[in-house]
Design a protein around this nucleic acid. Structure first.
Lengths: 169, 169
DNA sequence: TGGTATTAGTTTGTACACAAACTATTGCTC
DNA sequence: GAGCAATAGTTTGTGTACAAACTAATACCA
């Protein structure tokens, strides 16, 4: 039972390391740009889809709308983004970047994923396949099939799919 | 550039899925036990080391002491844990579980990792080796060598190692 | 057309998570 | 043994993150 247990422990440790590096990188971004990781992510999301609805930002970032409202408040108070109430449908708010916001997004570093992408692209195709297969197995184990995929990397395919919330009351 | 790009995107997606499943599981724990994932994790950490110092809890959970203080406040107000000021060194606070806390820890589900561990242990050794190798590559890419590993799974080896903090002032 | 359901966004309340500042205590040094 | 450094824990302030309740506007439908 020794070798197998060690392997399992190694795998868990590796996963935790990946988590931590992504978090560390986020703090690094904050030191370099003055805004936080989520804020930068939001700015990049806005830049890609402007003018974009609040709920679309939430969907693309896989966040709750209430969370996005807070992030937008802070971006707006820093003069990086701007909310514009739609005239056709007055429930809708469209978000766009200010000139300052656009300048920042141009010279800002990559979001956490960029780090991974850059590193992976340097590997051989054979390696990539093996890594992809391994992660697929992890995902299978976790029964994560129903989880919404995608993110920034694939601009299409980005539905919410998260209505499966119920209360325990 | 097509196939490689797709592979990279798949890998990133898988990583995000693993993140999400761990988070979902944490919410599931909350629905079933009434306490949050971090609180349950803290309780298990206390159960393993009681009576245990606040700073030791922080080290084992890789959290900031200030964060642990908040979690302990909530555990204490729910009658699950108890703070005892040490008599030998009056700076020290030792934390232990109440009877209710001990009952809860006995019948509580596994922390997020448990889910992964259980699934991995069902795989063949060959598979485990391949997954471990793939994750090692990811960790290499991220340059995560210096990151402190470990967690609950290996009771030994659990030093803080996080003094590399500096301000960006 | 009047009423109900749905949708978009916001507000409120709770829980992390961390840095920095602060208090109390202990250790160390001259 | 007085004074300063180090240590343990807490407090304060900021920023996520989400559920639930709420407001305003639009859509649907009988």
């Amino acid at each position: 039972m020794g070798e197998r247990t060690d392997l399992v422990a190694d795998i868990i440790d590796d996963i935790r390391r990946v988590f931590q590096v992504v978090n560390e990188h986020s703090k690094d971004v904050e030191r370099r740009t003055g805004i936080t990781g989520p804020q930068l992510w939001a700015i990049k999301t806005i830049a890609e889809g402007a003018p974009i609805m609040v709920s679309d930002i939430a969907a693309r970032m896989h966040l709750h709308a209430a969370t996005v409202v807070g992030i937008l408040d802070r971006l707006e108070s820093r003069g990086l983004a701007r909310r514009v109430r739609s005239q056709e449908d007055r429930r809708v708010v469209r978000v766009e970047l200010t000139g300052q916001g656009e300048r920042l997004v141009k010279k800002a570093p990559e979001v956490a994923q960029g780090l991974l992408v850059a590193g992976l692209e340097r590997l051989h195709t054979k390696n990539l396949k093996s890594i992809a297969a391994s992660l697929d197995q992890l995902v299978d184990i976790l029964g994560a099939q129903g989880i919404p995929p995608k993110l920034i990397l694939s601009p299409e395919v980005n539905k919410p799919v998260r209505q499966t919330r119920r209360t325990a009351k």
